[in-house]
Design a binder for these strands. Sequence first.
RNA 1: GGGCCCGUAGCUCAGCAAGGUAGAGCGACGGCCUCUUAAGCCGUGGGUCGAGGGUUCGAAUCCCUCCGGGCCCGCCA
Length: 534
Amino acid sequence: MVSPPEIIGHGTWYDKAAKELIERELRLGRSLDLIRTESGLGASGFPHIGSLGDCIRNYAIALAVEEQGYKAEYIAFSDDKDGLRKVPAGLPKELEKWLGYPVSDIPDPFGRCHESFGDHMSSLLLEALDVIGVEYRFMSGARVYRQGLLNREIIEIMENAERAGRIIYEEIGQTKFLNSLPYFPVCENCGRIYTTNAYKYLPDERKVLYRCEGMEVKGRWLEGCGYEGEVDVTAGEGKLSWKVEFAARWKALDIRFEAYGKDIADSVKVNDRICREILGHEPPMHVQYEMFLDKGGRKISKSAGNVFTPQVWFRYGSPQSLNLLLLKRFIGTRSVGVEDIPVYMDELDRLEDIYFNRVNIEDPKERAKLRGLYEYCWLLKPPKEPSVHIPYRLLVNLARVAPEGREEEYIREKLSEYGYLKRGARGLEERIRYALNWVRDFEEPVRKPVELSAEEAEAVRRLIGELRRGRGADDYQSAVFKVARSLGLSPRRFFRTLYLILLGEPQGPRFGPYVEAIGVENAIGELERALEGD
RNA sequence: GGGCCCGUAGCUCAGCAAGGUAGAGCGACGGCCUCUUAAGCCGUGGGUCGAGGGUUCGAAUCCCUCCGGGCCCGCCA
């Protein structure tokens, strides 16, 4: 009855899903020569952490399929034929004139670094994929339409547009496609894609007739130019509505798996039926996951319009720590913010300890799962040796007090003193960089001028004298007590004042060694400034 | 209107896939260098796992109902 648990692949959710996927394909009698997974890349705004989640989760399934002994491939499909619906936060208002245009037709707002707006945005995501090590086959929607890769499916859908419209209505109650074709032509006159209404299909010529009559997009009316035209649906001068486009993609590109966020759940539901009933093709296996939400509060980056991008994460944390966030759980809404990065950095260290058997986990299933999760964080290419492990907060604390100009040296010395470097220092440099970035960006000392009483000012003056005469940490330490005693001041209070001056905090590391570390001249300089500011 | 997720220690949350002794961080409390400075370390306390029912030898975990909170979609993508 109680049989030992069978561990599939690396023991993770991905391995289990991959097994189900393969079994499903076997049941359907399809070829197993190549199992493709896919995700759509939004190209109309800055890629968010969640955008990367779409990619890496579908890629992880491809990896898991390969672990089962089959060939697999992940396709990153850029939705760059979609129109611009809203000017992303952080970009100039002038872009409003491009609302409704396909993002692949809009010039790159950042200059000439990319061919188009859409190209710029999707390349930001591709960059992140490269940093993380995701292998993908990139496809641009605009190019796919131009190359005619979806033509057979487009025609089939146009010929059955009435049925498609009914399916959409039945599934989600949307009436629009009962009267319009699920195809958006790019207006030959004004160049916009969301203002056109395709109302008639001419099967012999494979053309749709349309009027540029305008549409409401994100609560805002985009007035059409009134142009009436016709367009060949195989010419790549328009696109299918999302309500039917996925189905076309799935069949034409032979996609077997697509995990998606719940925001597009309705579209997937409709497309599943379109795929089966109109294209006669069994849709891919799906898994639905929750969204990643921005945590309010902390300012991240002005230039990025406060979007929590992968690039922001990489400033403070490793690619693998981001993978951990994205892979560890599928269900449950995740509110994420930069403040979570230390947690994931530390958790990854724990997983690494488990992977390298420095920490024993009794339950074999549990152990397999955690080791597997670690391996997937490295996209199944884990390092041969563990890295150095230092609690992120400790690094931040050290980075905060590290004397300017020799931060790294100081941090290394301290860590060595604390015994953290006994097993080597693999990856220490990056960790120090992350912590320094953290402190620079979030803990820029808000050193308010310290108000000194006459007595305290006198104490500071005397201390400066003592520091000048002193030689080394012990002298500096003693000086504080000497001065405090000479004025009948409580050393506790005096230390507090000194830390407020030097660090902006009421506490700090042992005074003498700290003064030595930052350089006694620097310390004296700070103290003199405090006197002047009085 | 339709759908999804969450509810676990004072606080923030992990654990739930594939049931097997209730976990972490922060806070609180106690201790650990000494010329009163420990951003560190060690330890302690703290939970009817939202409520009720079901399945099971066994449920935080699976199923059902209810209560409370949140999110997504609604003629765009």
